[in-house]
Amino acid sequence: MEFVSFDWWQFFIRWCHILCGVMWIGHLWYFNFTQTPTMPKIPAELRPGVSKYILPEALFWFRWGAMGTIVFGLILAWMNGYLGSAIKLGIGDGSLHNTTIGFGMWLGTIMWFNVWFIIWPGQKKNLGIVQATPDEVKKATRTAGLASRVNTMLSIPMLYCMAGVHVY
């Protein structure tokens, strides 16, 4: 039955990878294109509406979107048979496809690391989930903001590799 063939499962995992990826990068771009530039323009008394209600919810979908993307992405690369080759950037394999997807995977992995080990720990201090002094909060928020901008920058070549791999 075609519905349960290996090809169908490959498609299903790719679909899950894309769904999570849109959830992740959609929120990343929301933070960088919309929320961060708009916050200074919002009257001070209205800002808690964003920082206390929208931000925690957005960060939840943002970080778990990142987790789902990398998990389904690794499963997909394994199912497609190029996980090992892509991890070593296709070096020695003479495959433009595997080198391209390898660069995309490594860029995505750096971004995932930034989300879970720099941005989220910093935001936990900013949101008061983790106790910190005002100086620590300021420093953590700045570091998280810069890591978020690094991810926005990396998302451009990462998506080139992810989408462009089908050309090679």
Binding site: S95, L146, V150
Partner: peptide, 30 residues
């Protein structure tokens, strides 16, 4: 000196430049 990542426009420009670098690296490696 101001960090270029503080500007959204410069962040996007750096992302495009990095894309060109990545494409050149891909073709150099493969």
């Amino acid at each position: 000196m101001k960090n270029p990542l503080d500007s959204l426009g410069q962040t996007i420009t750096l992302g495009v430049v990095l894309t060109v670098v990545v494409v050149l690296l891909i073709h150099a490696i493969a």
